[in-house]
């Protein structure tokens, strides 16, 4: 439904978006992932006709955005939840949108109810909103015209965990009803659970795309397992003897080997396992690996992958706990 065709946006010699091509299909949620400044927002702004492309083209359902009559009825756009007059109330902002799109005012109440903004909240001026409330209002505005296509830039930003879960459900059911959803994020966890397809972008270029399975299949490096046992030290020794890379992780171990190998090692050493599951090549690792050359360095710099067969402990980056790690509290983000 959304076709990005060799899109390039250059600012002088800097290429914010560099020859990007991808397709968002109908009935699917497409996740657009990349570190800050990777070019996600610029790409989405070109989609909505707010930024001109240097070369290449974006079409929605075969049309340029500006060629769509009353585009709010076909394409819902949320690019920046704060980009509204702070002196207007939430209800007034939606009313203006409904008025322009030619919708009955009842639609405003419907949308406010859908995103869970109460009457009291809706009659407050937007400058007093929290980021989460602004996001809800922005999502309500994007959905106002009952569009077939949704383009959402960082919609989960500022939402509380319950809000993120609510949004996931909303977008999933929207796609199931035949809608096309493109949402961007710099947080993998947010996207991984709802996106049918993922596009990873770094430094203005697409570094990988596909569904979760094919992304992992194409990933470099061996599979990892997460294991807990009654005697982690002995298990680590046994696994190291078998030539696997072992890192302590929380109360357990992270092993660069398939779960079957870990199971065999435990069996051979006679150690009782209490938890064994695949860490895959975490999508997180893949994400960091693919974008490591392009991420903004500094505090969040990504450590280089360890050389194989060398048992160094790689600390997880502080603000991104590994996916499916044993550190994840029960009832956490899953």
């Amino acid at each position: 439904m959304i076709t990005v065709d060799h899109l390039t946006k250059a600012y002088g010699s800097f290429r914010a978006v560099d020859d990007v091509s991808f397709v968002c299909r109908q009935g699917r949620v497409t996740g657009f992932l990349g570190p800050n400044g990777a070019g996600k927002t610029t790409t989405m702004r070109v989609m909505a006709g707010l930024t001109g492309a240097t070369s290449g083209r974006v079409t929605i359902g075969g049309l340029d955005y500006s060629a769509i009559p009353n585009p709010g009825r076909h394409v819902g756009v949320l690019l920046d939840a704060s980009a509204q007059h702070g002196g207007r109330t939430g209800r007034e902002i939606l009313t203006l949108g409904a008025l322009a799109m030619g919708l009955p005012s009842a639609r405003v109440d419907e949308m406010l109810a859908l995103v869970g903004l109460s009457d009291v909240e809706a009659s407050r001026r937007m400058r007093n909103y929290s980021l989460g409330m602004k996001q809800r209002l922005g999502i309500a505005h994007a959905l106002l015209g009952d569009p077939e296509v949704l383009i959402l830039d960082e919609p989960a930003n500022g939402l509380d965990p319950a809000g993120i879960r609510w949004m996931r459900g909303l977008l999933k059911s929207y796609a199931d009803r035949g809608g096309t959803v493109l949402l961007s994020s710099h947080l993998l966890n947010e996207v991984e659970l709802i996106a049918d397809e993922m596009i990873l972008i770094g430094h203005g270029r697409i570094v990988a795309q596909g569904d979760k399975k094919s992304l992992l299949a194409g990933a470099q490096g061996a599979a990892t397992s997460l294991v807990m046992s009654l005697d982690n030290t002995a298990l680590a020794t046994e696994l190291a003897q078998r030539g696997h890379l072992v890192d302590p992780l929380g109360d357990g171990l992270k092993v660069n080997a398939p779960t079957e190998e870990v199971g065999r090692a435990a069996l051979a050493a006679g150690i009782v396992l209490t938890d064994l599951r695949t860490g895959g090549v975490g999508l997180e690792d893949l994400f960091l690996e693919l974008t490591s050359g392009t991420a903004r360095d500094g505090a969040g710099a990504v450590p280089p992958p360890p050389p194989p067969g060398h048992g160094v402990h790689v600390p997880p980056t502080p603000n991104m706990p590994p996916v499916d790690s044993p550190l994840t509290p029960p009832g956490g983000h899953r």
């Binding site: 439904m1 397709v23 359902g61 075969g62 769509i68 009353n70 322009a100």
Partner: peptide, 26 residues
């Protein structure tokens, strides 16, 4: 994959008077 097209045949462009109304309200 052949991208399905957006059916815009039933949608009228926003009439100018409605834009004026919106701007007046603003």
């Amino acid at each position: 994959a052949a991208a399905p097209t957006l059916d815009v045949s039933g949608t009228q462009p926003i009439p100018f008077w409605r834009l004026v109304l919106v701007e007046f309200r603003k």
